[in-house]
């Protein structure tokens, strides 16, 4: 099914379309959530909430404002950040030892998925520390270009061009 058509179906309340959307985006969303929460059980809980939100709020997605993937990404990041700020979460005093997605990838013992994990891991090792930082902030944490520039003490334009180079390296490996 065509992406646009699939999203229209989802917006009209088609459960089959929802299942397809789940197939396409759940694993990625799970990864985003986990990179912020770093707890499997709580991430699973948040993942469910995120997809219920996707179902309930599908009609508020406007294709003119951006990609559907980006819309899902925002919901996942916001839900995760809300979760780690909640009293409930703080009371658990979770040990947040992992700092970013690279640490998670590196600490993973049993990796699964459609991609060659070992290959990816190797490639991530090849990504310089700047790329790791840029992708972590911009993609996983949802920082703006300006916030990233301030965080990394890097000029705005450099954030954009440097990130482009990082993603190009990633694409060359995973696609």
């Amino acid at each position: 099914m065509q992406q646009d058509k699939l999203i229209e179906e989802l917006q009209s309340g088609n459960e089959k379309a929802f299942e397809r959307i789940y197939e396409l985006y759940s694993q990625s969303t799970y990864g985003i959530i986990y990179s912020i929460i770093k707890d499997t059980a709580i991430s699973e809980e948040v993942l469910q909430d995120v997809f219920i939100k996707i179902w309930n709020n599908a009609s508020s997605y406007n294709p003119d404002k951006g990609r559907f993937f980006t819309w899902v990404l925002n919901i996942a990041r916001n839900a995760s950040i809300d979760k780690i700020r909640s009293k409930d979460f703080k009371n658990k005093k979770l040990n947040l030892k992992s700092d970013n997605f690279v640490d998670i990838l590196e600490s993973k013992s049993n990796f699964f998925g459609t991609i060659d994990a070992i290959g990816l891991q190797k490639y991530i090792d090849l990504l310089g520390p700047t790329c790791k930082k840029l992708i972590d902030l911009l993609f996983f944490k949802g920082f703006t270009q300006k916030e990233t520039s301030e965080e990394l003490q890097m000029p705005l334009g450099t954030v954009k061009t440097k990130n482009r180079v990082c993603i190009d390296k990633l694409r060359a490996k995973v696609l």
Partner: peptide, 11 residues
Amino acid sequence: ALLKLSAAVSP
């Protein structure tokens, strides 16, 4: 590429 990267991070 980003879908695959983030999926790889999922537990």
